[in-house]
């Protein structure tokens, strides 16, 4: 089976890539200013305490030795323990992963629902007022900071109008979360038949999804616009018109042929959102991976940072793999 062979090959290429990423991150975090042992020891620990801590943290060994120990642990599925939460990194990440994934997945779906149609309209009717407005919006949304936009939404829709719940995470503090099955609150509350939690989690998702979603409409719209434009100018679209195909059909041809590049940009954006939603997570107290890694950076929690980068890399690699597979569905010319 060719596909299976292709998949196998692709997955094999992940290994050197991941080792490379691990090495680079391993070195980079150690170049951060500040010493985690000092940070961990608090304000009243001195020389020998810190030295003892360094030893117990394994920081006294030469860096290459530390690296191989770490690599060995990672290969056994052990990402180490956080020096600050005192929990296995993997557990920390897994607890937070669904929160971020739920947020960014809904956001990107939102962006697609808005951005792709806008891009199509702008490409087909470049002179209409509507497409001018949407192009203008694309440039506007591309230039604003996500956390600022989030704060504005909070100010308008929570502080002033009080239409949406407080930015304190995924649920009201008084609502008991449903039993965790997938980690996605919306799905879990549905499974549990917990109507209250479902409505509440959706209400909490609204503003952060709106923030990330509206911001990411811009690149998606621009990419749709430019690839549609390119396709619209191609010979086969012209020939389709010469053959008297309806506008609708021509548009479907154009969209069909732009999809591969649109899917690619969607994959890139989705992959980068995992860590890229940090500021929005902070604004909404989301408690996802972004917030976790921010704290890890502040605390110089080496294993936590490394673990996060590893997970984010794997996530991106899988997204890219999906994108390539989808590309193959859309474009019969691509062979395994």
């Amino acid at each position: 089976m060719r596909i299976a062979k292709y998949l196998g090959k692709r997955l094999l290429t992940f290994i050197p890539l991941l080792i490379g990423v691990i090495l680079v991150v391993f070195v980079l975090v150690r170049l951060l200013p500040g010493d985690p042992a000092t940070r961990l020891a608090g304000n009243f620990a001195y020389g020998d305490t810190i030295a003892a801590l360094r030893e117990s943290m394994g920081l006294d060994k030469p860096i290459w030795q530390q690296f191989f120990i770490y690599l060995g642990n990672v290969l056994q599925g052990n990402l180490g323990e956080s020096w600050f939460t005192n929990k296995p990194i993997l557990d920390d990440l897994i607890v937070r992963f669904p929160a971020t994934l739920e947020l960014i997945t809904l956001s990107i779906l939102f962006s697609i629902a808005i951005g792709v149609p806008l891009g199509i309209v702008a490409a087909i009717k470049p002179k209409s007022i509507f497409s001018r407005i949407s192009t203008g919006y694309g440039f506007f949304a591309g230039s604003i900071a996500d956390f600022w936009f989030g704060l504005m939404l909070v100010f308008v829709f929570f502080t002033t109008l009080n239409w949406f719940p407080a930015p304190i995470g995924r649920l009201d503090l008084t609502i008991t979360p449903p039993l965790q099955i997938t980690g996605f609150l919306v799905i879990d509350s549905l499974l549990a038949g917990n109507w209250n939690a479902l409505m509440n989690s959706i209400a909490h998702l609204a503003l952060p999804v709106l923030t990330l979603g509206l911001i990411n409409v811009a690149p998606i719209m621009k990419m749709t616009l430019s690839s549609m434009k390119e396709v619209m100018e191609s010979d086969f679209i012209n020939h389709a018109k010469v053959l008297g195909l309806s506008d609708k059909k021509v548009m479907r041809y154009a969209l069909r042929n732009s999809l591969p590049s649109i899917v690619t940009i969607l994959g890139v954006i989705y992959g980068s959102l995992l860590g890229g939603a940090v500021l929005v997570e902070t604004v909404f107290g989301w408690g996802g991976l972004g917030q976790y890694v921010t704290q890890a950076l502040v605390n110089k929690d080496y294993s936590a940072i490394q673990g996060f980068v590893l997970v984010a890399t794997i996530f991106s690699l899988f997204i890219y793999l999906f994108v390539d597979l989808i590309y193959m569905i859309f474009d019969p010319r691509i062979k395994f």
């Binding site: 086969f236 020939h239 018109k241 053959l243 195909l245 309806s246 069909r256 042929n257």
Partner: peptide, 23 residues
């Protein structure tokens, strides 16, 4: 559109470029 492809058929050179590659 009532004429194109119906009354007047056109065969272009470069068939490859004029056919939709994904259909």
């Amino acid at each position: 559109r009532k004429y194109r492809g119906k009354e007047i058929g056109l065969i272009a050179a470069n068939a490859r470029g004029n056919l939709n590659p994904l259909v």
